[in-house]
Amino acid sequence: MKTHSRLMMFSLTACLAYTLAYYFDWSLFRYYLTSGTIDVAAPATAGPPILWYGWLATAVLAGVTAAIVVPRGFVVRLSPELAWLVPAVALLAALMYEVRWFL
């Protein structure tokens, strides 16, 4: 049950953090395609970056932190329905964010 609640907390926080990460561009690092380098800053001559790896890293970091820091008593009191509602809302948010490509 202890592991159970920590895993739930990780997923809930990480899904929320990923959504915020791509919306506000909170990328932990950037991968530069042409040079094949990873950088936290944005060098002027580095070419186009891939942000997706950095967004994922941000989400994982947030998820792990929440799973460790948030007291288990609080997690146990959360409704089990949040386990699917939060990811469902995150998917809908992604759909709404990217709908501009289809208009």
């Binding site: 592991t3 159970h4 895993l7 739930m8 990780f10 997923s11 809930l12 990480a14 899904c15 990923y18 959504t19 791509y22 997706w52 967004w55 994922l56 989400a59 994982v60 998820g63 386990a83 990811p87 995150a90 998917l91 992604a94 759909l95 964010y97 990217e98 709908v99 501009r100 490509w101 289809f102």
Partner: peptide
Amino acid sequence: LRAANGAFELKEHFSALGVLLLPAYWACWK
């Protein structure tokens, strides 16, 4: 091909969200 590009952008987000919800999914099926 804007729609194809957008479909991939969604694939990117769905993959990330999918892998991030796996711990909760696995815990539910434990």
